[in-house]
Design a protein around this nucleic acid. Sequence first.
DNA 1: TGACACTGAGACGGTTTATGTCTTAGTGTC
DNA 2: GACACTAAGACATAAACCGTCTCAGTGTCA
Lengths: 195, 195
Amino acid sequence: MMLSSEDKILDATRRCCERWGIERVTVDDIASEAGVSRATLYRLFPGGKDILFEALRVRELDEFFTRMLTEIAGAESFEDLLVRTIVTATLELRADEHLAIMLATEPGETLGQLTAAGVPRIIRVATTYLTPLVTPYLNDRQSAQLIDVLARATISYFLAPSEHFDLGDPVSARSFIRPLLSVFHPHTTSLNHGL
Amino acid sequence: MMLSSEDKILDATRRCCERWGIERVTVDDIASEAGVSRATLYRLFPGGKDILFEALRVRELDEFFTRMLTEIAGAESFEDLLVRTIVTATLELRADEHLAIMLATEPGETLGQLTAAGVPRIIRVATTYLTPLVTPYLNDRQSAQLIDVLARATISYFLAPSEHFDLGDPVSARSFIRPLLSVFHPHTTSLNHGL
DNA sequence: TGACACTGAGACGGTTTATGTCTTAGTGTC
DNA sequence: GACACTAAGACATAAACCGTCTCAGTGTCA
């Protein structure tokens, strides 16, 4: 399996920031870890470290939602879709080793990427991936709002587990989702969603 | 329990070099980790990082042998003393978390401190602590030679375990020590060592 | 109160390290 | 032979770090 230079560099970026932290890693570190010259790195990622980390986060989000889609593809109802979505997302977050390492070694920056600075990107990517699944049940505006809410909730319950809900557990997640359904009450939309 | 500024700084040095590595840590990091201004750090450790790490290594060696002394104090014979010494040292090395972290994250520098650049210091401190225990059985020159040999052997068998000896096991350690006894044959010294 | 020791904060100049751009030469492909 | 891509490294700029120093604030003891 032959990796592209972009992927080699992004992989190296991930390893380097696990090891040295985001602030301390240098472009030289990443280039040599990737087995690539610094010139090549700047050609593929003009702008240096910032662009590099941005690209890494986007790629990881893409991978995250791509993996997720295979899990939630077979949902049979609107409720089932939402439950699967937050359960899968929660379990995937909990299983993410890189995220765990970054949370442990650089909590400030990592939390920022999950709760403040990074939220717009997360919402954007989540919307891109999930909207097609939700549109059978909701209009665009409702879809965007729902995804926004669910993404924030999933992150919050991942970062700070609650004694009331465990979004990694389908039963608990369902009891969390149900009140939301009445708010969005998809049965009042003009679409025939087939169930 | 009130720590002195020196101890706070050395503790911070240890934490920082576990986290960022010896090369990447800065004096500012250590100072702020210690909750101390940079001026104070330079006042207490003139010379900066090098002096700081040197002081840290000396302190850790002191603690190492101080802990050891309490374990080997009750030795009843020359052989018993030597066995206890290498067994205790070996077990203590194996239990040293900081050492494990440093070996994992910065093997080059750490191995250097155990096998090359750091050996003179280790031998010096070991000699200081252990000579008083050995002098009942050997003269000064023999003591120094024996401690030199045992320290190097302990380190070597710690870093690269052998299939022939396990210096953490008293029985195996005894079989390792015995041939040495005949070399140093303390029964030929002019001292009456009481056994 | 005043002398004294100690500290944090931060300014300073000098040095090292990192950055981003650029050129050159080498390699494989079509 | 034209083309795309790359490693290596020179280069000037920018940033970080270093070590020293000053100054003002704090607590202690006489």
